[in-house]
């Protein structure tokens, strides 16, 4: 099972910044982003999140987000999607980084999830 990482943020640059950080340690892990609204304002956009989820070639998608409304929009999108989506209420930067680094090393989702547990903050 390939793990894919999806980043959902209110701000496009925030998602892009974390992606840059992650790609250093996980160049082979499929990574897609949904940042900001359609017109690049601060916010979340259901269509953008759908696109990031559908475009990610990973078999199991581990999704990380910044603040509450991203979570709700994400849940709505997940309910309408057929992809295997796992959402984590963890510290955005740290958890996305460690999940990507572990996935790059071939670690499976359940083991990654165990490592993410102490990072749960929301």
């Amino acid at each position: 099972m390939t793990i894919g990482i999806v980043l959902v943020s209110h701000v496009a640059e925030l998602a892009q910044g974390i992606a840059k950080l992650i790609q250093q340690v996980a160049p082979d892990v499929p990574l897609t982003l949904a940042g900001g609204t359609a017109d690049y304002e601060v916010g979340t956009d259901a269509a953008k999140i759908t696109q990031a989820i559908e475009a990610n070639p990973g078999d199991e998608l581990m999704v990380f987000y910044d603040l509450g409304s991203a979570k709700m929009t994400l849940d709505l999108v997940a309910e309408m999607s057929t992809r295997a989506i796992y959402r984590y209420d963890t510290a955005f930067v740290e958890s996305a980084y460690s999940a990507a680094a572990l996935a790059q090393a071939g670690v499976g989702r359940l083991e990654i999830e165990a490592q993410l547990k102490p990072l749960r903050i929301k």
Binding site: E41, G43, T44, D45, S69, M72, L76
Partner: peptide
Amino acid sequence: LISKVGGAAGPLYGS
């Protein structure tokens, strides 16, 4: 509402 609101109100009113 889900696609245009952008903030938390979108998924809440939308749902």
